[in-house]
Simulated scan of single mutants.
Amino acid sequence: MSVPSLDQSASESAVVSRLRAAGCVFAEDEARMIMSAAADAAELEEMVERRVVGLPLEHVVGYAEFCGLRIEVDAEVFVPRRRTEALVRMAAELAPVRAAVVVDLCCGSGALGVALAAALDEVELYAADVDPAAVRCARRNVAPAGGEVYEGDLFAPLPVGLKGRVDVLLSNVPYVPTVEIELLPAEARDYEARVALDGGVDGLAVLRRVVAEAAEWLAPGGVLLFETSERQADEAVAAVSGAGLLARVATDDDLDATVIIASRPDTA
């Protein structure tokens, strides 16, 4: 379907019409976000065109709204989903009253760690990701929260001194089975890094690697939280149990979120 052109004096209604014609369901809201982010008419035209051809709105405007915060999101970096706000809320409820040591593993933009830090009084925050683009993005989000971001595979780049000290380990691992990547919406499939989506044959390959090492990093009373799909929950719990951790499933029906909460046996 062709869409109307946009001249430099375009009104919000013209932007809405163009977005709606391109299939954007929330065209009015998106138009307001794009027009607020654009510095001038030329940038507005460019941003609308990028959205029209299918780029995620967050990549177009350069940020995502998450837990009431504005998180910078660069091109190809995983966009934090609203359902993951449930994981952050659960983590905040489980965090110690004292200053908490928090690690955000597979951090992407760093949204989870930053949001949890904002919810707690005092946090020692660390984050890590294997994707250099995600690390560059996360550093801009995490630094204002006083945290550090490391580049590397899972726990490997983290300071060794964190072993046995982590109160809350957030690990939003990729959990889409490889064969299902092509079934994802185009916004994710075509514009987010595959490493942030692909969870291997059954979607749990990265998770198994995380839980295999989690116990040696968790402090007494520390917890690991990760998101999965409802249909994968039983297998995810089995993976956690197989690694010698205790696990329970928590859900949020409003956000359609399924979260696994794990702990060391000596903290049960």
Rank of each mutant, 00 (worst) to 15 (best):
E180G: 06
A133E: 15
V88C: 03
T267C: 15
R189S: 12
S229Y: 10
D121W: 08
L19W: 02
R136G: 14
E76I: 01
L112R: 05
A10W: 07
R50Q: 14
G152E: 10
S17C: 06
A37N: 06
L120Y: 09
A268I: 03
V135L: 07
L19E: 03
V135T: 04
A268M: 08
L44Y: 04
G161L: 10
Q8V: 06
D7T: 12
E213G: 01
T228I: 13
A247R: 08
R98V: 13
G62H: 04
N172K: 10
V259H: 10
L197R: 03
E30C: 08
V73Q: 03
E187C: 09
E230D: 13
V201W: 06
E230P: 02
Q8R: 14
S17H: 07
V114L: 06
S263Q: 12
E46V: 11
D256M: 07
A196H: 02
N141F: 09
G110C: 11
R189V: 10
D253M: 14
V173Q: 05
F155V: 04
F155E: 01
A133F: 03
E46Q: 15
D29P: 00
T228S: 11
W217D: 03
L170A: 12
I71H: 01
D253K: 13
Y126K: 08
M90C: 01
R32I: 14
V52H: 05
V15D: 02
L246R: 15
A119Y: 02
A127I: 07
P159V: 14
I181M: 12
G110N: 10
S11T: 15
R18F: 04
L197I: 08
L94G: 10
G200D: 11
D254W: 11
A133C: 10
L246W: 08
L169C: 12
A233T: 12
G108E: 02
R189F: 12
R136E: 04
A64Y: 01
R194Q: 07
V135D: 00
G221D: 08
R83H: 15
T84L: 06
P157A: 14
A42S: 14
A95F: 11
Y150P: 03
